[in-house]
Design a protein around this nucleic acid. Structure first.
Lengths: 189, 189
DNA sequence: TAATAGCATTGATTAATGTCAATGATATTT
DNA sequence: AAATATCATTGACATTAATCAATGCTATTA
């Protein structure tokens, strides 16, 4: 459970074992079964979740009952509803597990406290936020200027490890197209 | 030039005049004429820009010569190419002014230094990043699940002050649709 | 003042994607 | 082992949006 977090922090920073012992105390471990919710729409999102094992998704359900998937999160990724965390409004999204999963949760308040106590954690989070914003900018650029086929090719190229673990109809949802369209694109390639 | 920054910081934090004098020393003022570039594709983006006066846009040009606008930035907004800042790769975007504009520029290095010197600036930037990520999440959600008409209505509702200052064909570009489609939507409303 | 550029709208046609239904294969549950 | 659910693909048809061309109005430039 914590081993993945330690490996992750070691890869990205020069954190020492002493500091890591402090870091651990700020997280709460949680296990989810496949299909189990971490967040349901209407709830206020009050944790950032680090994925130690498994894969989760953030999605909404539209009036017609279709799912719109905003994000997948496999191991070593973070997931939460940033809109709800910032606004403190009830979320319009759901987060659930696509496989049995293990997570480490931290509240925004503990997150700030930890960042002020452990400098490498602060620097890491700052860097992650910068990279997250850059990744979002790239995703928005693709969303408004790519064809459906270009979107799929880019996704496969960028996230091969996600492609092999989630159903095609969820990839279609994430890319903003119907499963039939994705199937036709795949048969053309 | 600096008055807008002071007003902005006063609105969002309890910054004192002493700290503001420190903040000022980290920024470089710059004036742009209408249509003048702040960033051209191929250059490395090495500044965050705060808009004191005027309005800018971040956009790419596709192989067919069409512009894809990712962001507008009127007064009191920040603009830069976050992908280039993070990766230090040459930008695939351009930033230019849609009106004569006045900016305050800060390098990422100075930004970090200032944040470690002036605590309210650090907290403000952290909060802005959180809000930026939340706004991006919302934008991505709209991009993959809204109809063209819903996108336009949401844009008009959220950014009325931008709508009145930029040409319709630029709004169409920002929303990822053709100018003709936007015109037809507007005539239906 | 006249010429030119920029902007917006409209019509006709084409292209891309969505929707609905059906089918078959694989995985899961009983 | 059988029944059920999930997943993916394909065909036919409908809808949405893009493309191309034309027109007219307003702003800018010469």
């Amino acid at each position: 459970m914590y081993q993945t977090l330690y490996k992750y922090l070691k890869e990205k920073t020069d954190i020492g074992e002493r500091d890591f012992e402090i870091v651990k105390t700020y997280f709460i471990p949680k296990k989810l079964r496949k299909k189990q919710y971490l967040l349901q729409e209407g709830d206020i999102c009050d944790h950032f979740a680090f994925v130690s094992k498994g894969i989760l998704r953030l999605y909404s359900i539209d009036p017609k009952g279709s799912e719109n998937i905003i994000q997948f999160a496999p191991e070593e990724w973070w997931i939460s509803d940033r809109e709800s965390i910032v606004s403190r409004n009830p979320s319009k999204y759901n987060i659930d597990a696509l496989e049995d999963s293990e997570l480490l949760l931290i509240t925004p308040k503990n997150h700030r406290e930890l960042a002020s106590r452990v400098k490498v954690f602060d620097e890491l989070q700052e860097n992650l936020n910068q990279r997250h914003i850059a990744a979002h900018q790239k995703r928005i650029h693709a969303a408004i200027s790519y064809s459906a086929e270009e979107k799929y090719l880019e996704f496969v190229d960028t996230y091969p490890q996600i492609v092999s673990r989630v159903p095609q109809h969820m990839i279609a949802s994430y890319l903003g197209m119907s499963p039939e369209t994705l199937s036709r694109i795949r048969s053309r390639i």
